[in-house]
Design a protein around this nucleic acid. Structure first.
Lengths: 275, 275
DNA sequence: CCCACCCATACCGCAGGGGTATCAATGAGA
DNA sequence: TCTCATTGATACCCCTGCGGTATGGGTGGG
């Protein structure tokens, strides 16, 4: 199976429409129809149920969609990591904007002091984006936060575990308390994070993209949020953090794709484990 | 990047010889040379240092070799799983021959009683082969044994944890002891298991491929081995198992590729977790 | 009943992948 | 030092197969 065929199939399966898929792929519709037919013939499996009104996935088609996406990511990753390796040594670390700042700084300092350390390009992004970057080769290692982030398919090492606090504007009724329980927080409209598909769940809270943005909303008095204790780091004084004693504990882990434990990534991971 | 190009590159990188690689691929040498040149041009990266006497990998080439192998496995997996999904529902479970027999039987019984259970094709193979099968799509779930098997890149659920015993022929000097420590076992030549590449490490013990084979060698008085306690199950009476109290504990886990948690696999995993 | 929509078919042109023949560079051995 | 075997690159040709345009045919909505 060629990646071209896979890309074509994934486009049609996602659009559920040959015309739109062809447009997205930048080709005409007839060659796309033919390519899918040929793929079906080669696999000996019907992938799509087509009527003139709708295109639906068969069981086999659904399997090929998920497996094919993973395969295309792997191919993209191979290409990206090779390109990066060609321009010179160096690794890309991705972390959530505004999270684990202190830990990240310590890690980078410690690694830089290591003999044979290479350049570390730090990328900051919103949650749920990290997994994607690690999977398609735009990043080599990530700092993830269990149980929020999925570590599925990656190797990981635990770094720190911490409790969570409610971050809220000074003056908020709950800000005077010395500690809280989840039940106390139930009435507070919590911010809504993007779903893996980029949309937002329904609810009363504000839509936020990253922790920096959230922090600003909190200090403006327009949001309150339960976050790991370490978000207290660098807090401005008009925001108060009150520990939520029964909130799930958050573990910061360092994650990397299991097959690509390069020298540099291994060094960085070893370094992180010593912190 | 097309899978054809990747297959070509991996062949050359593994053979370190264009002629042999071409032969392996079933094409002539000139088109292979051209394809690699074209790949290098498209990636903007030199992948191989070639002289007339030897072909060596560059840094970028080494990256593409490992990443490319993973990507090709993912593509093969997509194709195989789609083909299987097309012939009908059903999943392939792979376990080590002669290991976790009781657990496996219970699991299969429990799952078969589940509503909506599909056929489970059980494959038995030697250790280190399972990972490969799971990775290239010939299997959907596996029973692995930590810390012997690597679970890198898979999702897992722990099933059971047990100690290990020394299995040895009745009449062996150590067979009278009621328990042992690792130090007692140090002098016993242990069997050698295949390495991931199919070869065997050097040493005094016999070469074995799977637990069944080992069991037979033990009962013939030609081997002794430290194995999980559950290997005691179905033991013939001329073999004695003596607990090794300080041997590392073995955890049997059920593992599956994280992206392909199909209905059937999810059911099986849930079923396993309840055992 | 007609029309709009949408996938499939027919047919054509050409890019590019594969084959054979041959060259060029390099290192081993006489 | 000269020769020769080895090995990757180049030259050139053929033909497969991918993509394009034009068009057909089936289906649901108005």
């Amino acid at each position: 199976m060629e990646t071209r065929e896979l890309r074509y199939f994934v486009a049609v399966a996602e659009e559920r429409h040959f015309g739109r898929a062809a447009e997205r792929l930048g080709i005409a519709q007839p060659p796309l129809s033919r390519a899918i037919q040929q793929l079906e013939r080669r696999l000996g499996a019907r992938l799509l149920d087509r009527t003139t009104r709708e295109v639906a996935l068969t069981e086999a088609g659904a399997v090929l969609l998920t497996e094919g996406r993973a395969a295309l990511d792997a191919v993209d990753a191979a290409e990206r990591r090779t390109r990066r390796a060609a321009v010179g040594p160096g690794i890309v670390l991705v972390s959530k904007a505004g999270a684990s700042e202190e830990l990240l700084a310590k890690l980078l300092d410690a690694y830089a002091a290591e003999p044979g350390a290479v350049e570390v390009d730090v990328q900051l992004c919103g949650p749920a984006q990290q997994e994607r970057l690690l999977r398609d080769g735009r990043a080599d290692v990530a700092l993830l936060h269990c149980p929020f982030d999925s570590t599925a398919g990656f190797d990981t090492d635990d770094l720190t575990t911490e409790g969570q606090s409610l971050f809220l504007p000074a003056g908020h009724p709950l800000s005077a308390r010395s500690e809280l329980r989840m039940a106390d927080v139930a009435g507070v409209p919590l911010p809504r994070w993007p779903l893996p598909d980029g949309g937002y769940p329904d609810g009363p809270g504000p839509e936020v993209r990253d922790t920096m943005q959230l922090r600003q909303l909190v200090s403006l008095g327009r949001a309150a949020a339960v976050l790991p204790d370490s978000a207290r780091h660098g807090l401005v004084d008009d925001v108060v953090a009150v520990p939520v004693v029964d909130a799930p504990r958050v573990t910061t882990v360092i994650a990397w794709p299991p097959h690509s434990r390069s020298r540099a990534v291994a060094d960085l991971v070893r370094c992180a484990a010593r912190l």
